[in-house]
Amino acid sequence: MGDTVLSVKDLVVDIPTRKGVLRPVDRVSFDINEGEVLGVVGESGAGKSMTGNAIIGLLDPPAHIASGEILLKGSPIQNLEKKEMQKIRGFEIGMVFQDPLTSLNPLIPIGEQLSETIRKHLPVDKKTADKRALAALDEVGIPAAASRINNYPHQFSGGMRQRVVIALALCAEPSLVIADEPTTALDVSVQAQIISLLKQLCRERGTAVMLITHDMGVIAEASNRVAVMYAGRLAELGSVEKVLTTPEQPYTQGLMASTPLASEGKKRLNQIPGAMPTLGALPSGCAFHPRCEFAYDKCRVDPYPTLSDCNGRAACWLVTENSEKR
């Protein structure tokens, strides 16, 4: 792996409300290297998308970054001026959204949407930008791109539109792409195509990818490393093989046990009892302890552990204790 492209350190996102401050992202730290795909998994509301939005600077007010650092190629970007951030968005960090049907402006031809993005970030004239737009569409596998460049989004299918969205995210050659559930709104057959397209394009360019999803299949297929999030906190971080086969954090263990496998036949699925706490009613200590079968006093009383408090891989007191015993 190459250099570190993105480095997030102790990121905290706060939403002030009348009933007090909610904290959808709490002391999250991770790195992504050049050409690497980091999968971020977790239930709805675990803070995955919030983390992605914080990185690209698109948090909806009143949500804001309360503390922590976001380093892009070594320089902090969390407190940049609006104009500076505009230069980074699309140029250094590309983003792919969940629903391709609503991500494209319905009244503007796709070619124009591409060339306006290219011209915003690269010092090229209109003609060159149009050429690059055409090349970008070719690259993402739009058939007969030259004849479709002036078409409007409604003239494309869902899968094709997501290809256009990927072309838009990559057209200024960013060093990081945040893909926020890029396949959730697509057919299963199209999902695999989109994932392999994203993977292939980013490998060719050495682009780092933050792949947000709740689909373990997508993670297994596409990512190098996995970050598991629970209630706004990182629960586990490690290589795909390790996290999927030998998870250490009890939440990850439960998550893996509840993933259906074709090889297991009609066995009843495991489930984790209870539900993820809402942000307004987080339990003391580790957020997972009310649902954890291994929970003991330390989990309920002590401030919750971060990865660095434990072995750097799983945020769990039990993991630390076990490794100390050994």
């Binding site: 968005r89 140029f91 959204f97």
Partner: peptide, 20 residues
């Protein structure tokens, strides 16, 4: 979403408000 996506592409406020 397409306005959010336009912001994510780094377009200027003016272009987003008046064009998109």
């Amino acid at each position: 979403d397409y306005i959010r996506f336009a912001f994510a592409r780094g377009l200027s406020d003016r272009s987003i408000h008046f064009k998109h």
